[in-house]
Nucleic acid binder design. Sequence first.
DNA 1: CACATGACTGACT
DNA 2: AAGTCAGCCATGT
Length: 120
Amino acid sequence: MASIIKLSEKNRDFFALVYEVVKQIPEGRVTSYGAIALYLGMARSSRMVGWAMNSAHAQKEYIPAHRVVNRTGSLTGKLHFSHPDLMKELLEAEGIQVENDKVVNFTELFWNPSVYLNFD
DNA sequence: CACATGACTGACT
DNA sequence: AAGTCAGCCATGT
């Protein structure tokens, strides 16, 4: 029926914040759901970040969701893209090597928002 | 209200 | 490194 997602105002803000952070991820770098949650002060709501990403594709502005993986560097969200291999292709297009659904050199490519988006 | 589900994580093995 | 478990929290039934 209604394809419109019902969200409380509180969660709308949360979604917007998540997208805002994801959009700041530089090309060729990746981060994790937990790191974003931590940066937003919701360290125990990492699942909610993934939940927010589920609606990223519906946003008017482009969200580089492929740059967000789980803590081990696994492409856990690949099945939610329009094509299962799209996530890998997008990452490789940015120079990120992907092997067996995992980001190679994940620890080196990891982009921590809490470090690069420090509050002053 | 109880229970299941999920783009997660940390601890433990 | 990889698998299992419990904790996590918003949604759906």
